[in-house]
Nucleic acid binder design. Structure first.
Lengths: 211, 211
DNA sequence: GTCTATATAGGGATAGAC
DNA sequence: GTCTATCCCTATATAGAC
């Protein structure tokens, strides 16, 4: 318990990963904190969260595991930080949905954005696919209100009274179709240019939702 | 190392879960081995493989964790045994595919069967969804030739030269659509009767593959 | 900001009694 | 077929030096 606060007063901004924000030290690239997150994302995606030790992460970066505790309060804190990057996208989707009842048209628009996001952050989405268990444990402990909202909205849309069963199944199916094509079977289409793949997927989604 | 062989000479038959094979002891239901697998499947699906200890499994069954080692050589052996149940379905799909090039029609037939299987063994598929990382580690150690075959065939179909990109994406999408509707968003459609859900899904798949 | 050294716990696995 | 007792290792996490 008694989580230690990150020493740098910096808020946990959604680091876009771009070459934007300069590190605290040299003018050179990313801060140590971000470098830890990058390596962690890579290893967690490859081997899974539980099978990856802090030692492994530290070794890759050239220092010892204890040093990590300067930047993060715990191993779970790292997991959470990565999850937060992902969460940004969810928030965007949420606002886009508004609070009216979900319609197939809206869903199509949502997935349209999602396709771009997934294409651009493939590993991040793959990470979520492959670490569902660890992430659920995370939410069981820390009750993230924001996450609940998102999840609830999602489920609500999929159980909406206004839409018949077939329509709702089609919505779920469209979502799964996108995820499977981009994240899960990712390396099967790895050589396909993103724009081309995106184009086909949009067609598939439109077809599926009949819009 | 030096894996201990299961004492009961029984081959690891694909226990269908039915009330078929009587236990060794009383005429009453399942053998201890199967009861362990059932509880393990439940806990692994709920909390994840790594977050579930042998102690937890044993507690649920009313004995201590050491007793488990009479039935299984290791914790991974339990994971493997559960995975083998799943593998039966893959094998069936494999033979159904034959060795000719995959066509959308064949794929539709494949998914037609898959829908039934998933509907009937939802938790088993959900388990696989949520423990992808642990399962991949399993295959990294023990080189399962059969599994390689299945995986290879799957990828091969998705990268087949005979089918254009859109066709292949549609195949991947169809698969993802089914998985998402049945396993991932499972509780959203939990109250929907299986036959009704299956019917809609078949329609969606046919639509998606244009057959 | 990064390090060494160390505390502590929990989990997987073994040996052998009953 | 199930149990107790125990070994051993790894991993998280802490304290505090540089």
């Amino acid at each position: 318990m008694s989580p230690r606060v990150s020493p740098s007063g910096a808020p946990s901004v959604p680091d876009s990963g771009g070459p934007g924000d300069p590190g605290v030290d040299g003018a050179k690239g990313k801060s140590t904190r971000e470098r830890i997150l990058d390596i962690a994302l890579e290893l967690f995606t490859e081997q899974g969260f539980d099978k990856t030790s802090l030692r492994e992460i530290a070794d890759r970066l050239g220092f010892t595991k204890a040093a990590i505790y300067y930047h993060f309060a715990s191993k779970e804190d790292i997991l959470m930080s990565i999850h937060l990057r992902f969460h940004e996208f969810g928030r965007e989707m949420l606002t886009q949905m508004g609070d009216g009842p979900a319609t197939p048209e809206m869903w199509a628009g949502l997935l349209d954005r999602a396709i771009d996001m997934i294409l651009e952050h493939r590993t991040l989405f793959l990470f979520h696919e492959r670490n569902q268990a660890a992430l659920e444990n995370l939410h069981r402990e820390r009750h993230d209100a924001e996450h609940e909202d998102l999840q609830a909205k999602f489920r609500q849309a999929l159980s909406s009274e206004n839409i018949d069963l077939e329509g709702r199944v089609r919505m779920a199916a469209a979502f799964g179709a996108v995820m499977a094509s981009l994240a899960v079977a990712g390396d099967a289409f790895a050589d396909v240019p993103s724009d081309k793949l995106g184009l086909v997927l949009r067609k598939v989604v439109a077809d599926l939702l009949r819009v």
